[in-house]
């Protein structure tokens, strides 16, 4: 068995297992950490798929950024009692049935489908090509993504800050 195969299964199990822990854990902090492992697993899968730059971005943005955000969110919205870390699960049965059905259907279709595989040679590095594309074909999405981030920052600040005391008069409802 080749190394890549072993690695694939290893990373897949990490990814899926951690994701499952995340979903089924009763403690939200555990969930958040499980999500981190899952995301790292996904990043490793990217490496297997010759996408080194994306893998690095995944680690930086997801694990380094989004996850920290989520943890901050968890901390700020609980009052430190372990009691509050509990998360409630509802409509477990219908949700599981639906999810399993979706997974089964997707897997069935994926296996059945006759994909047009074309073997790509393993590239030495993708960063240069990606950079050229960003400045070429993808210049507009690149710029729009910038605007998107700007808007997101404005929005996040707007929503997260508390209003200064003298102006914060509650509305009549």
């Amino acid at each position: 068995m080749e190394l890549t195969t072993i690695l694939f299964y290893l990373f897949s199990i990490i990814t899926i297992g951690a994701a499952a822990v995340m979903v089924f854990s009763k403690n939200i902090v555990h969930s958040a950490f499980a999500l981190m492992f899952s995301l790292i697993g996904v990043a490793s899968l990217y490496v297997l798929l010759y996408a080194d730059f994306i893998a690095a971005t995944q680690l930086l943005v997801y694990v380094g950024g989004i996850l920290i955000l989520i943890l901050f969110g968890v901390m700020l919205t609980t009052q430190g009692h372990s009691f509050d870390f509990k998360t409630i699960t509802v409509n477990l049965v219908p949700a599981s049935i639906l999810s399993v059905a979706v997974a089964a259907m997707l897997i069935f279709v994926f296996v059945k489908t006759d994909w047009l595989i074309s073997e790509v040679a393993e590239p030495n590095e993708t960063i240069y090509d990606l950079g050229m594309m960003l400045m070429g074909d993808y210049i507009l999405p690149f710029i729009v993504a910038g605007v998107l981030l700007l808007i997101a920052i404005i929005g996040a600040i707007l929503m997260a800050t508390r209003l200064s005391p003298q102006t914060s008069k509650p509305d009549t409802e």
Binding site: L148, I151, G155, M159, S168, D171
Partner: peptide, 13 residues
């Protein structure tokens, strides 16, 4: 994303 925030703009309510 813009509309999510705009909907919550009157965030005191």
């Amino acid at each position: 994303i813009s509309s999510y925030v705009l909907v919550g703009f009157t965030k005191q309510t």
